[in-house]
Design a binder for these strands. Structure first.
Lengths: 230, 230
DNA sequence: TCTTGTATCTCGTTT
DNA sequence: AAACGAGGTACAAGA
C-alpha cells in the first residue's frame, strides 16, 4: 500500500461527474489498483475513489492543463470506462508499506439474528402466538415468519431492523398473495422492527397491520413488552 | 491526520459486534476523532471504523489481554456507547500531516438532473407528451412529472436512475391517490429510469404502467445540439 | 453469473 | 432536529 499526502485536484467521470477543487489530501493506493482520496474529516467514505480492479497511469501534463500541475494520475476501472483523474500540484510526503492478506471481519447481531430470536418465542412479543415456520414460502419469495394466534388464526410477520415504507410494501405483497389461499382465511399481518418510521407505521396501520417494536436486549433475555394485539 | 501502520486486532461493539483477527493494517486517525482501519484491498469501505465525533484513549494492557499486546486504543463515540477497541502488537510506521479544511465535492448527473432533462421535453421520450408540471402535489408527496398525452389524457411519470420494485410501489401509491380525482379520469402511469430491474418491469407492466428506459447521454444531446448529431 | 435484500449504511435535503 | 429518499451505494446470500 502506498500513502501520498499531496496538493491535488480530482475529477471523476462515470455514472456521474464529480469534481474536487485543489487542496491537500491523503491519497491511498492499494495493491489491487484501487485509489482512495481522503480529507481530514467526514466519515469513513472517501471524498472520491476508484473501485478495484483498477489501473494507475502517470502522465505528464500537456498544455490543456493548469501550468502549475506536476503530474496527471489517471486511474481507470478495468470493467467500465470510469475515470478518476488526479492532478498533482505538489507531493508533500510519500510512504509505502507491505501489509499482506487480511484475515477478514466476523460479524454478529444483525437482522438474521433478530428474526431467529423472534422465531424462538413469538409469544413473548405477541401473547398466544405460536410459530408455524420461518421463511414461509410464497410465489414472490418467503415471508419471515408464519404463526398462529391463540384463536388458531394465521399471522404472518415481516421482520426488519429499521422498518420503513418499503418493508410495509413487502409485507403487503406477501399478505395479498397469501390471502388468496383458502386455508389461510382470516390472515393477519404484523410489522415488527427495532425502529418503525412514522410514515411506515401510518401506512401499516392503514392497511390493517399491527406494528410491534422489538427490543433486541429484551429478546435476548426473556420478556413480554406489551399487551394483547389480537 | 495521523497514519499508523500497525500489527493489530480490532473489536467493535455497537449496533452489532465485529472482530478482526491480528494482522498488519493501516490506521487512519482524523482530526475529528474518527478512526478508519484499512487493509490493502477491498473497496473504499474500511474493515472497521468509528464515526465522528469520537475520542481516542490509549491504555496499558492489563492481564486480561494477550500478553504480547503493547497498547489498547479505545475509540468511543461521543453520542452513543459504541466502542472500537484496537489492540496494538507492533507499530511499523507512523506519520502525521496537516491537511486543513477541504473545499468539498461538486456532483453532476444524478436523478434531479435526469428529471430536469425529461421535464424539458417529455415528447422526446414518449411522442405527443406535454408537461403540465414538475413535482405535482399529492396528499402523500409530489409525483415527479404530470403530463398530458396527444389525446389530452393525464399521464404521471415517476423518474428513477435505477428502477426497482420500490419505485413501482411509489408510482402505484401516487396513481391510486390521483385516480380518485375526477378531473384526472383516464390517468396513466409511466415508470422511467436509466436502468429498470427485471422484477420491477414485470410488476410495473402487471399494474398497467408503461416502462421507459432513459438514455442520459441522448437526453443531454437533445438539450445540447452541439454533439455529434450531424 | 445475476438478482435480491440488508446496511454500524452515508449523505443530502426538507420539514 | 428529525425524517425521508438517493447512492459511482457496498456487500452477502441465494438462485
Amino acid at each position: 500500500m502506498r500513502i501520498v499526502f499531496a496538493d491535488c485536484s480530482v475529477d471523476y467521470s462515470g455514472r456521474l461527474d464529480a469534481h474536487l477543487p485543489r487542496a491537500v489530501r491523503l491519497l491511498m493506493l492499494k495493491a489491487d489498483g484501487s485509489v482512495l482520496v481522503h480529507s481530514d474529516g467526514g466519515s469513513y467514505k472517501p471524498l472520491n475513489w476508484m473501485s478495484p480492479p483498477a489501473k494507475l497511469e502517470v502522465k505528464e501534463p500537456d498544455e490543456s492543463v493548469d501550468p502549475e500541475a506536476l503530474e496527471i494520475w489517471d486511474v481507470t476501472a478495468q470493467k467500465s470506462d470510469d475515470l478518476l483523474r488526479i492532478t498533482i500540484f505538489e507531493v508533500h510526503a510519500e510512504y509505502e508499506h507491505d501489509l499482506g492478506i487480511d484475515p477478514g471481519l466476523t460479524k454478529d447481531g444483525v437482522e438474521a439474528h433478530l428474526q431467529e430470536l423472534l422465531a424462538r418465542d413469538p409469544g413473548a412479543v405477541i401473547p398466544g402466538l405460536k410459530l408455524v415456520r420461518r421463511e414461509y414460502p410464497t410465489p414472490i419469495g418467503p415471508v419471515d415468519l408464519m404463526c398462529r394466534n391463540a384463536d388458531g388464526e394465521p399471522v404472518i410477520i415481516e421482520v426488519k431492523r429499521v422498518g420503513g415504507i418499503d418493508g410495509v410494501e413487502q409485507l403487503t405483497r406477501y399478505f395479498e398473495m397469501l390471502s388468496r389461499d383458502s386455508l389461510l382465511s382470516g390472515l393477519k399481518g404484523v410489522f415488527a422492527a427495532q425502529v418503525i418510521k412514522p410514515q411506515a407505521r401510518v401506512l401499516a396501520e392503514d392497511r390493517g397491520f399491527a406494528c410491534v417494536t422489538l427490543d433486541y436486549d429484551a429478546l435476548r433475555g426473556i420478556e413480554d413488552p406489551q399487551g394483547t394485539l389480537f
